[in-house]
Simulated scan of single mutants.
Amino acid sequence: MAEQTDTHLSPQPNGKFTINFFETVKDGKDGENIFFSPVSIHLSLAMTMLGALGNTAQQLKTALQLLEMDSGDLHEEFCKMLDVVRSAREGSSLHIANRHFVQNDYKLLKTFQDASQKFYKADAKNVDFASNTEASRLEINKWVGEETQNWITDLLPSGSLSSLTRLVLVNACYFKGDWKSKFNVQLTKPEVFHVSSTRKENVLMMKQRGKFNLGFHAMHSFWFLELPYLNEDLSMFLVVPTEIEGLQKFEKNIDMDLLNQMEKQLIMENSVFVCLPQFRIRMNVDLVKTLQKMGVTDLFSEKSCDLKGICEDDLHVASAVHESFMLVDEEGTEAAAATAVVMNLRCAPRPPMEVKVDRPFIFYIKDKKSGQILFFGRYNKPMEHLAVCC
């Protein structure tokens, strides 16, 4: 099942960044749920790259897996990718918005402003960080809430901005898609989810029988299932180990090339009974710590940061945050994510008739038209308010 892309931007940087980011952020989080939007983080840092120079730009380019791309064409290709991702889709809503919040009377370079608008459709909004920091924070959070249908309402927590803040680059991403084949609500009932070989919890398990693309990887022992949305350019892919604790083994060998290969080798099966838990997942990520582990250090250093392509003053990134949320039910999927970059002045066997997702699994939502991964996660355990008591 070959993947089609209508954009010149290769899906490889997005995929490689996704896996590297996942491997970094999951460190020390054994047994925890993980969820993020690669495209939201990628776009926010790409916007930052517009004004980054020297080693600061090189570190960003390395972390974003963009070294093989020509710097002159990089942002043009991001622009083309955004046009494809934003194109109208029947039965789904995919919304991506970018905005700069700038201190009143603070002079950004015209070249940066023009490029931000041209490539990322990022308009600028003046606020007063210097004398009214809290009101500015609330205004940014309000905008993010509006752009994500109020799924992300407190992206910037109290204390995340200061009177020295001069610029905040924000990306908001919202997705809502109906399944091509919806689950029968009447079949949903409490069933066991194996958090581990020794721990079980009850979840609401959704069920349906239908035709689905399915594959099996014998070496790593996992089922690979595609659940398409009504617009078949968009799909959720599931990696379901055959063993209850098999995900830990798979994660040691996870590779985007492997997942891409599995996508191409999927086979349409005429009758598969799918059991999938209803689930919600939400995560906040401190991008500063994560990106530093990925080699982006100068960006956060008052001494070394070079953002002279944004303004003539000495800016550095004081904080960077990312929050994402997803809801999966019988009708489909609703997901949202937002990223803010805050800049301060220096200071194989036959497939089974049943695929039962009753153990930890990996999932991702992909826009096959552009090849971009929109959301990526690991589901280890039910959130407390969704656990079901039988």
Results as ranks from 00 to 15, higher is better:
residue 3 E to A: 08
residue 3 E to K: 04
residue 5 T to C: 01
residue 8 H to W: 08
residue 12 Q to R: 13
residue 17 F to M: 09
residue 17 F to Q: 02
residue 18 T to Q: 02
residue 19 I to E: 04
residue 19 I to A: 05
residue 20 N to D: 15
residue 24 T to L: 01
residue 38 P to D: 07
residue 39 V to K: 10
residue 39 V to D: 01
residue 41 I to N: 11
residue 47 M to N: 05
residue 47 M to A: 11
residue 51 G to F: 15
residue 52 A to F: 08
residue 54 G to I: 14
residue 59 Q to T: 14
residue 59 Q to D: 12
residue 61 K to F: 06
residue 62 T to V: 08
residue 64 L to A: 02
residue 65 Q to V: 11
residue 68 E to S: 15
residue 69 M to G: 00
residue 75 H to E: 07
residue 79 C to T: 04
residue 79 C to R: 13
residue 79 C to I: 03
residue 84 V to E: 05
residue 84 V to A: 04
residue 88 A to M: 07
residue 91 G to Y: 08
residue 97 A to L: 06
residue 107 K to D: 05
residue 113 Q to I: 11
residue 114 D to I: 08
residue 117 Q to S: 10
residue 122 A to V: 07
residue 124 A to S: 12
residue 124 A to T: 13
residue 126 N to E: 13
residue 128 D to F: 04
residue 137 R to N: 02
residue 138 L to I: 12
residue 140 I to L: 11
residue 143 W to M: 08
residue 144 V to K: 08
residue 146 E to F: 03
residue 154 D to P: 02
residue 156 L to H: 07
residue 160 S to F: 03
residue 161 L to P: 02
residue 162 S to L: 09
residue 166 R to C: 13
residue 168 V to G: 05
residue 168 V to Y: 05
residue 173 C to H: 02
residue 175 F to M: 07
residue 176 K to Y: 02
residue 176 K to M: 09
residue 178 D to W: 00
residue 178 D to L: 01
residue 187 L to G: 00
residue 188 T to L: 01
residue 189 K to I: 06
residue 189 K to W: 01
residue 190 P to K: 09
residue 191 E to I: 02
residue 192 V to R: 05
residue 192 V to M: 06
residue 192 V to D: 12
residue 192 V to C: 03
residue 203 V to S: 01
residue 210 G to L: 04
residue 215 G to N: 10
residue 215 G to Y: 14
residue 217 H to E: 14
residue 220 H to S: 12
residue 225 L to V: 14
residue 232 E to G: 00
residue 233 D to R: 07
residue 234 L to M: 12
residue 237 F to K: 04
residue 237 F to M: 13
residue 242 T to M: 06
residue 242 T to K: 08
residue 244 I to M: 01
residue 246 G to I: 10
residue 248 Q to P: 00
residue 252 K to H: 08
residue 259 L to D: 05
residue 260 N to Y: 11
residue 260 N to D: 13
residue 261 Q to A: 06
residue 265 Q to V: 12
residue 271 S to Q: 11
residue 277 P to M: 12
residue 281 I to A: 04
residue 282 R to F: 10
residue 284 N to G: 00
residue 286 D to L: 07
residue 287 L to K: 07
residue 289 K to E: 15
residue 298 D to H: 06
residue 309 G to S: 03
residue 311 C to F: 10
residue 317 V to K: 01
residue 329 D to C: 00
residue 331 E to I: 01
residue 331 E to H: 09
residue 331 E to N: 03
residue 336 A to Y: 08
residue 336 A to C: 08
residue 344 N to G: 03
residue 345 L to I: 15
residue 345 L to K: 11
residue 346 R to P: 00
residue 347 C to Y: 09
residue 348 A to R: 04
residue 348 A to P: 00
residue 348 A to E: 09
residue 350 R to A: 15
residue 358 D to A: 12
residue 360 P to G: 08
residue 365 I to M: 01
residue 365 I to F: 04
residue 365 I to E: 04
residue 369 K to G: 00
residue 370 S to G: 09
residue 370 S to A: 15
residue 373 I to F: 09
residue 373 I to N: 05
residue 375 F to T: 13
residue 378 R to I: 15
residue 383 M to C: 06
residue 384 E to M: 08
residue 389 C to H: 10
